[in-house]
Amino acid sequence: MNQHIDAIVALSAILFSMGVLGVLTRKNAITIFMSVELMLNSVNLALVAFSRLHNDITGQMLVIFVMAIAAAEVAVGLAIVISIFRNRQTADVTEINLLRW
């Protein structure tokens, strides 16, 4: 698989760009969280590829920590979305302006 490292890094860049596009264009807060997950996963993919290329375990360790952080982020983020939905009856980020002014 080591001859494919270039292709895996390219795949990682494409998936990361898709995540950026999703965060910038979608309005639904839950879909935005999914796009963030897409970005985290693409970074994990690049880390594993480099870890394999250099035969260094550190990259795979970092992936484990990124996964733990992603789980924590999703739990807190979805709790915030539920809390806002309970008060505003919407998960549209363009209508949520609690902190704007």
């Binding site: 590829a49 394999r52 795979q60 996964m67 789980a71 999703v74 979805l78």
Partner: peptide, 25 residues
């Protein structure tokens, strides 16, 4: 991940991401 011989991470990816986090979503 499996192709890159990162077996443990492949299993964790399926269990934690595709299992737990997506069920939460």
């Amino acid at each position: 991940y499996l192709m890159l011989e990162a077996q443990f991470l492949a299993i964790i990816q399926v269990i934690v991401y595709a299992g737990a986090i997506m069920v939460l979503f």
